[in-house]
Design a protein around this nucleic acid. Structure first.
Lengths: 205, 205
DNA sequence: AACGGACCAGACCGGTGGGTCGGTTCAGGG
DNA sequence: CCCTGAACCGACCCACCGGTCTGGTCCGTT
């Protein structure tokens, strides 16, 4: 049963390197040879494991991107008392530029979403479903915060979640090139202002 | 001297239709023939007027996109007393889906920015400079609002401008397919919350 | 040893799309 | 009326890339 091991190992290498390069240069701007050359693999190897470039990328999305988004943006919210600081921290974390060899996984969502929009509906739907998971979770956490008295009762949780996601995605377009730490700082600061507006004001007394 | 007229007219037709289709399908996903067929023009005609596809698009950016962004997002802010409602209105306006044949010009910024990022630096820079103009103007208007007592003194105008732009750009990724008027409404509502947080609280004596 | 199948190498194919080039039309000036 | 040059046509070139196909290698089984 070591066949399966070899297979999984090669597929894993392909997916990892694929995500790395797709994230760098974009999906349509990356040829299979770009990836295969880096791994010293051939077309034959690739098509032995994946039925198409599209199938390949969907594999990457569902195995790697989903996990990273979940780990960075969803999971950290489930074990906290006050949701607002937790959300803030998760966003700040996700916007952190990749350290060393690691990528900034949170970043790539916006890029891929716009790249596949109106170009490949299937992949687009996969990506949107990831966003959807995040959104649902945000809404649920916000509602819990409302019950627990951390968020003002008048707040529209769905709207707030949408707004948070939008601002996060938009930061990607702004932070694309320059590793401008300033931008991230500004973003976090303003987000705090917004959070302050929707937080339950501790009625002193 | 009607030659020049003819030339300008053809170039104008090319640019208009080009922006329309590029906006629909993306730059790299649109072939020159896609555009030329619609206008019943030939490759020869195209390359008589433009030296490359890139040159063509830069022409579009600097002639059409700049104007529209300016008209929608910059100019409306210069003749108002209270900046916050004016900004809100301009954003709401820019997010309005294209009526009939008209496009939603505000939309396309995020798409083009991410499409050209790390793929064509020159075009990318042109687009970023448009963003920059908008940002500078936002900052200036916000600062004026601070002086005029509409915005709280503690507000970081640069940060606020960045934040507004980011949230606006991000909305594009969310509103891509479904003409979901709900999203726009949610966005505007939450933006009001944020604006409320940075507005100067009229100290009820 | 022999067989079979998983794994892989790389030449090849076919469509696509940016860009070229020789030729054609037509308006205007001498 | 011819000639020049701008505007335009469309066949062609070529690089690129996703996908196919033939054949080879390695490993486990019998």
């Amino acid at each position: 049963m070591q066949m399966t091991l070899k297979r999984r190992e090669t597929m894993h290498r392909l997916c990892g390197k694929g995500l790395e390069i797709f994230n760098e240069k974009g999906y349509y701007n990356t040829s299979l040879d770009d990836i295969l050359n880096e791994l010293s693999l051939s077309k034959g190897a690739f098509y032995h494991h994946f039925k198409s470039k599209e199938d390949y990328f969907i594999n990457i999305v569902q195995n790697l991107i989903v996990q990273k988004v979940y780990a960075l943006l969803v999971e950290p919210l489930n074990h906290c008392e006050d949701p607002l600081p937790a959300i803030l921290e998760s966003l700040e974390n996700a916007l952190e530029p990749g350290k060393k060899n690691e990528m900034a996984y949170g970043f790539m969502l916006n890029d891929f979403l716009t790249e596949f929009n109106k170009r490949n509906e299937e992949i687009s739907n996969h990506l949107k479903s990831i966003l959807s998971v995040w959104e649902v979770n945000l809404v649920s956490v916000l509602k819990r915060g409302k019950v627990d008295g951390h968020i003002a009762r008048h707040v529209d949780c769905e709207g707030a979640a949408t707004y948070i996601i939008a601002s996060f995605l938009g930061m990607r377009s702004l932070m694309m090139d320059s590793t401008n730490g300033q931008l991230k700082y500004q973003y976090i600061q303003q987000l705090k202002q917004y959070f302050n507006a929707i937080a339950a004001h501790k009625v002193a007394a």
